[in-house]
Design a protein around this nucleic acid. Structure first.
Length: 104
DNA sequence: GGCGTGACCCCAT
DNA sequence: TATGGGGCCACGC
């Protein structure tokens, strides 16, 4: 385990584990890191410049709202829909169905 | 070495 | 059912 990594990078590594058609939440990532820094997780995503390598479009809010995205919420919604996630009015229709958990 | 900021969360009106 | 406000943490200046 490299606890030497920056918090941001640990978020990215976790995010890479989320497969297509699945989503996770800012809170789940923080929880997986044994932290309550959901805020910091959001900041980490915002600073992500490698949109292709790091699929931050698969991160949504706890209530299912898709939140924000560097290229706009519409792009985020379309990407998710393209992966098979049901999106209605910028919200995940059935979060429980698509939610990927890191095993806790 | 302190302070503001942000792709958030949740409860109380 | 909609909003408001307080709280949480890492990062950069």
């Amino acid at each position: 385990m490299s606890n030497h990594s920056r918090f941001n990078e640990r978020c990215y590594q976790l995010l890479k584990l989320v497969p297509e058609g699945r989503v996770t939440t800012y809170r789940e990532i923080a929880r997986a890191l044994k932290s309550n820094a959901w805020r910091a997780v959001g900041s980490a995503m915002a600073k992500n410049r490698q949109l292709i390598v790091i699929p931050c479009h698969r991160v949504v809010r706890s209530y299912g709202s898709i939140g924000q995205y560097a290229s706009g919420v519409d792009a985020k919604a379309n990407l998710l829909i393209g992966e098979g996630v049901d999106i209605v009015d910028n919200k995940v229709k059935d979060l429980k169905k698509h939610l990927f958990q890191f095993g806790h």
